Simulated assay, not measured.
Amino acid sequence: MQAFKNTFRAATAALALIMAAPVSAQEYPSRPVRLICPYAAGGLTDILARTVAQELSRRLGQPVIVENRAGGGGIAGTDFAAKAAPDGYTLTLAGQGLASVNTSLYPHLPYDTLRDFKPLSQIAKFSLVLVGHPRRAPESVSDLIHLARKNPDALSYGSAGNASTAHLAMEMFKEHNGLSLLHVPFKGESAALMELVAGRIDSMFATVGGSLALIRSGKLRAIAIPDDARNPLLADVPTMREAGIEDFNVFGWFVVLAPANVPERVADRLGKEFMAIGSDPGFRKAMLERGMQAVGSSAAEAAQMIEKETGRWAALVKKTGIALD
């Protein structure tokens, strides 16, 4: 009799779990979600995080709270997110530096993007633009290549610092075209742009958002966009391909990640929401106003991009010896 009772209780408990499963699946999210921004408030990543959080909250029906965890160049916040519970209630926003480039720059990086995270979506991208002084050479891509080959290391270029997107982009441009240019790193893009305006460096790759006002005011010359298509904010500026340079495409990007082993049903729900956000007219307009472009890729596309970009930058870092300050 006791054995029967035990068997009956076990069967009842198992049935309860089975019946509860669909309810549980429908319950996500049942409480606020936090979106880790691995940088301090006020910067481009933080602005994007808050815009994404607002859109996601509207779709999930729960608050999505941005939590800034700055430190270690974004590594501390990213590592924190990697070690969070894989339940869909902690997400993080990461750019290509944190998600791809750091793998080659830090021998003891505490996280591995594709091992420790589940990519949910490439949510946005931003174009770079090759800029120069409006009254000095180079005036075009072909002009830059000609001058650099004629006088190796005579031309200088600026960047936001060693291993920044601007630095990596120009090093790849050098390798792609067999050039030798002098790198002058600064502490941030704004400082480099001011030196270019003053004529103390010759060119640089800048973000469209960071350089747009200077281009429109005539203080900088926009030379070319290293992307598949022209940027809508600089519609009269040719792409590198249009300028005669094939197979040179470099842009900045942001992905939304969840800790690895997040339940598939949760990842699928979030992935669908991010794809919807990427195509939302209001979100697209907000991104364009900040010099970015909305994407909203699938999870598979985001994972493929991270893997491809990680290999791409690893090869460049190894070949050129790029290192952090």
Score class of each variant (00 low, 15 high):
F186Q: 06
G210Q: 10
S203G: 07
S190W: 10
A169Q: 07
S180Q: 14
G209P: 01
K187Q: 13
G199E: 09
L212N: 05
G178K: 09
T165A: 12
H176T: 06
E175L: 13
F173S: 00
K187M: 14
S211C: 09
M194H: 12
E189L: 08
L179M: 12
A166G: 13
S203K: 05
L196S: 02
L193M: 14
L179G: 05
S164I: 08
E175W: 08
V197F: 04
P185R: 06
A169E: 01
T207R: 04
S211V: 03
H183V: 09
H167T: 05
V208L: 09
V197W: 03
L168S: 04
H183T: 09
A213E: 15
E175Q: 15
H176S: 10
N177R: 13
M172H: 05
N177L: 15
L182A: 13
L168V: 08
G178H: 10
G178T: 09
L181A: 08
H167Q: 11
R200Q: 14
E175D: 14
L193K: 04
D202W: 02
M170S: 04
L168I: 12
D202Q: 10
F186L: 06
V184L: 13
S203Y: 07
A198K: 13
E189P: 03
L212W: 03
F186I: 03
L179A: 08
A198Y: 07
A191T: 12
M170C: 05
S203C: 14
